[in-house]
Amino acid sequence: MTYSARRTRWLRALTAAALVLFVLALLMDFLYVGPEKEQGEAQRIFYVHLGSFLGAFISFGVSVLTGVMYLLRRDARWDVLSLSGVEMGLGFSGITILTGMAWAKPIWQTWWTWEPRLTSVAIMWLAYAAYMMLRAGIEDPEQRQRFAAVYSVLAFGSVVFTIIIVRVRPDTIHPVIAGPTQADPTGSFEVTGRIRDTLLFNLFVFAVITVALLWHRVRLENLARLVEQRKLQALTGHWGD
């Protein structure tokens, strides 16, 4: 598999930009914005917590869109993107869950509680973990890609569910940063001035990191499939076909 030099230059530039932006985001998180008056230093977790959720949303969004494209076109390149989206989404949503736990302990006095948002995000993570198991369990590549594409469309329901649950369930204690909610959350804070600037910058940086990682993951999957193809050719004696 060979890529154009121009595309590779773009990927390198994006990777470098992601790295520089990540360092700048950390500097903003620790130096530009101060601790929140009630939640103290723990509130800083919120910037990467929300940023990583955006990364997961983008990744799972890519997965569902490319899953639909695969079902329409039956082109393996869409499957590569869909798989990459799920794998990156699992990583980013893992960060969301873990950073949320670190924040919850001092604010809610517990690492975990089965309230609606936390339950839905756990279901979402498990639904996508099951996607990886589904792929691993199907031998035939065409069948694997078809089943995975259908599953990625179904699994995206858990992402939508996670987003809307804090707006429709009055018993959630999870804070809602933007938009209406019927609940009375524990641990809310006012998003003004430097907190807003830092949050928006972190969201932008996590979006850039997500695109860069997805691009690298796609290249990795293309290489993995090339190696599999070459192995198959070697086994059947069709070198270089």
Binding site: D29, G40, E41, V48, G94, L98, T99, P106, I209
Partner: peptide, 20 residues
Amino acid sequence: MGDYAEYMILGYALMGAVLG
């Protein structure tokens, strides 16, 4: 270091570990 600094460090360390 202010209130709950240890949880902030834990949160960022977990983020760094997973992303890394």
